[in-house]
Design a protein around this nucleic acid. Structure first.
Lengths: 247, 247
DNA sequence: CGCGTCGTTGATTCGTCTCAAGAATCGTGG
DNA sequence: CCACGATTCTTGAGACGAATCAACGACGCG
């Protein structure tokens, strides 16, 4: 429940970090890049299950994941949580806080993780000086907004088999775009988390995964997934789904 | 299916327009405000049922609704559409296009409507000059992102009565914040649209509304709604829901 | 005024949740 | 390193909620 603040210098590691911070740094001049690196001076380690920030806590920093993975959740009074998104290395956390100055969700680590801390005040000033950086931030936020809308489609229009197929293919896509295998990966989140994210119960998640396994679409041992038949998974979205081609 | 482009000058109307463009103009100096007005030189009328823009069409402008109302939809190959959001006067349209340079959804008018056209290139340059304007845009986009996440909660965690109660209270809130009655308003969208947005079938929407009417929570005649018992509607979210206090 | 879309209501089916028990795995401390 | 308890995962049987199919009524537009 407590965060360790390691003041390790990032040295020049940002330049070689290879993370999708690329999204933000794309097209920056050398001096702009140096400015950006100069404000990202600390990292934070977050242990599995601990939270990077809480709903209603004040928004001061954005974060970029260096290692590990996170989930964002909205929690009700009785402790029921709804997962609204999963996050992986290179992705930014905390963007929802810009709106009101406080975080609107909890952000928990699904494994021992480390993030780069980006003080938002400094970052915003930098954006004002760098047209490119500003553009990159806007684009990133807009892309997150679009991603949310596509999730809404899944939640509102898919039945459970479609949801799971969609989810697996989305994960596959995200791992691939990050340089990992698109057919073999580890689902860090629990069945409950997957279910919560997709709007179904963990038992149903389990049943659908078993069914896919029986149908030789996937192999699954606990959190370790092997997608055997990508085409078959895509077919789960019957022809009519094909418009959501982005997966 | 065709858009009329009226080159009416907006004159000084922006200043007195009273719309939630306030969100964007809040805190601007006089000269900044004048600059903003100067780039918003045209309006567009969109007839009921027509589209302001299409998925995959190129993103060139943002729009602000002057009058009327819109829905954004993602459409599948077979013509099934999922409504992802409803929009009312003062709200901005097209923000999802910033990410990729093309629109990711269709935007249809639910009644005869009129929007202000904001050329994004000009707007972006203006943002670069005005720290305040830039901040306002970022905040607005972030707020839209948060709104989307809350909708995901509704889609994923609520049962149909809760969804409808949530929806009615959200509409109430939005009308009120715009200076209209929070207890009596007209739902411009069809039952199908409501259902699509909430992830349920139109028949179910109708049934739930009838049930609420029988329970004296609301009065409803077609699209005309009268919320009689706001507290009762809130109670539909059983105690455990109370964390989503924002409604 | 008539036609088409939209809305309501009913009967039935189907999918997912619920409740429950057992198995597998993880984490922890001895 | 093993043993233990606590989670997590899987699987089953039954209940419940929402979808489906169908018919009719009410508006709204031309």
């Amino acid at each position: 429940m407590f965060l360790r603040n390691s003041n390790e210098r990032l040295s020049a590691s940002c330049k070689t970090c290879g993370l999708r911070l690329n999204c933000l740094s794309a097209g920056l001049t050398e001096p702009e890049m140096d400015d950006l690196i100069s404000i990202i001076s600390t990292t934070k380690k977050v242990h599995k299950g601990d939270k990077l920030f809480y709903k209603s806590s004040s928004f001061k920093n954005l974060y970029v994941i260096r290692t590990g993975s996170f989930k964002s959740t909205l929690t009700t009074a009785d402790g029921t949580e709804q997962v609204t998104e999963f996050y992986f290395p290179g992705e930014m956390l905390g963007l929802g806080g810009i709106a009101s100055g406080e975080h609107f969700c909890d952000l928990s680590a699904m494994e021992d993780s480390e993030v780069c801390v980006v003080p938002f005040n400094d970052f915003e000033k930098l954006c004002h000086r760098s047209f490119t950086l500003n553009k990159n931030l806007l684009r990133y936020l807009s892309a997150e907004y679009v991603r949310g809308n596509k999730n809404m489609f899944s939640l509102g229009s898919f039945r459970s088999e479609e949801k799971i197929a969609y989810f697996l293919l989305d994960m596959s896509h995200r791992f691939e775009s990050r340089g990992y295998s698109r057919t073999e990966f580890i689902l860090r989140m629990t069945r409950s988390d997957i279910g919560s994210f997709l709007g179904m119960k963990p038992e149903t998640v389990s049943r659908v995964l078993s069914k896919f396994s029986d149908a030789n679409l996937i192999e699954i041992r606990q959190k370790r997934v092997h997608l055997i038949d990508l085409k078959g998974l895509r077919n789960i979205f019957s022809a009519r789904r094909s418009a959501l081609s982005s997966l």
